[in-house]
């Protein structure tokens, strides 16, 4: 659906030149929710703005739905942009227009008839749950409501792609969750491809199918959220996951205190249905190894449950080895921690 090939973006010229993206490649499938996570300054905002050419890359190709956007004339580009909706961190609504008129804006650009506009806007107001606010101005709305207007406006031209530029970063946690739920709902209902950028792992974890980690103007790691989240390879990715759990310090203390000859600390990852199963207690009952829990999490990635537990096994070395082998055989990921 979206293909970025060799995207380089340099701001400024000569000695003031700053490279935001360097030779970045990215491929996004139709109908998926694709997240890009990175620290501020990593180039993620430039990246998403390159997709609809709000930022024109210095080099590289931008393919959206089989069309190379950088080759288009101004008029053709305007045409293509109507198929790409976008929502923003600061909403960017017309302050001089009502909720209704804001949502009608993209339709009026194309000269739709009054009746068509009315039907469409009413549908969208219902979709985002703002029917009773249709005649209010943006300044009379809360942040979450403003973003709902932004979403409705972005959907008005029936786009194939929705770009979300830090769409939840200015919202409180509850509102963030409500907006994410709405995005997920829209994705399922209209089979809309969603690209979102964020600095919050939580956002990725809640709704994304795939994720790319951007750092220093390039993608350092990408894949299914479950893969990247549970088995992070790159330091930056680990950073994001760590900052989400914030348990590094106490865990280290626990591991150090527990170190002994007849013990072994391991990280066990449960995934899907196994998360709620009793594999661990079944296995240790058979092998006679005892265990202490040092750290544990149970959560979900999108709708799939997962658990991660760090335990210390105690018992004869062979018995511990059998326990680990048995757990692996049952389909759990077991990583030995030294």
């Amino acid at each position: 659906m979206i293909n970025l090939k060799g995207i380089t973006k340099v701001y400024g010229k000569g000695s003031h030149a700053a490279t935001a993206l360097s030779g970045l490649n990215l491929s996004i499938e139709k109908g998926e929710i694709f997240g890009v996570i990175g620290h501020s300054g990593a180039g993620k905002s430039t990246l998403i703005r390159c997709i609809n050419l709000l930022e024109r890359p210095t080099e590289g190709e931008v393919w959206v739905d089989g069309v190379e956007l950088t080759k288009l004339s101004q008029g053709q580009l305007q045409e293509q942009r109507r198929k790409i909706g976008m929502i923003f961190q600061h909403f960017n609504l017309l302050s001089s227009a009502t909720v209704y008129d804001n949502i009608a804006f993209p339709l009026r650009l194309t000269g739709s008839s009054r009746a068509d506009i009315d039907t469409k806007v009413k549908d969208l107001l219902a979709l985002v749950g703002l029917e009773e606010h249709r005649d209010k101005y943006p300044s009379q709305l809360s942040g979450g409501q403003k973003q709902r207007v932004g979403i409705a406006r972005a959907l008005a031209s029936d786009p194939d792609v929705l770009l979300c530029d830090e769409a939840t970063s200015a919202l409180d946690p509850q509102t963030t969750d409500a907006i994410l739920k709405l995005l997920l709902d829209i994705n399922k209902r209209f089979h809309l491809t969603i690209v979102l950028i964020t600095h919050e792992m939580h956002v990725i974890q809640s709704i994304c199918d795939r994720v790319a980690v951007i750092h220093g103007g390039g993608i350092v790691e990408q894949g299914k959220v479950t893969e990247v989240f549970l088995k992070p390879q790159h330091e930056v990715t680990r950073d994001f996951i760590r900052s989400e759990s914030q348990n590094e310090g106490p865990l280290r203390t626990a591991l150090d205190a527990a170190a002994g000859d007849n013990s072994q600390a391991v990280k066990i990852t449960f995934f899907g249905e196994k998360t709620y199963g009793s594999a661990l207690s079944n296995v240790v009952r058979e092998t006679g190894v005892s265990f202490a829990i040092l750290h544990g999490t149970i959560s979900t990635i999108k709708d799939v449950p997962y658990g991660q537990m760090i335990v210390r096994f105690e018992g004869p070395a062979e018995a511990i080895a059998v326990t680990i082998a048995e757990l692996t055989a049952q389909g759990l990921e077991v990583e030995v921690i030294s």
Partner: peptide, 9 residues
């Protein structure tokens, strides 16, 4: 920018 993104001339 939002308007540009929506394909406004």
């Amino acid at each position: 920018e939002a308007a540009q993104g929506m394909g406004a001339s």
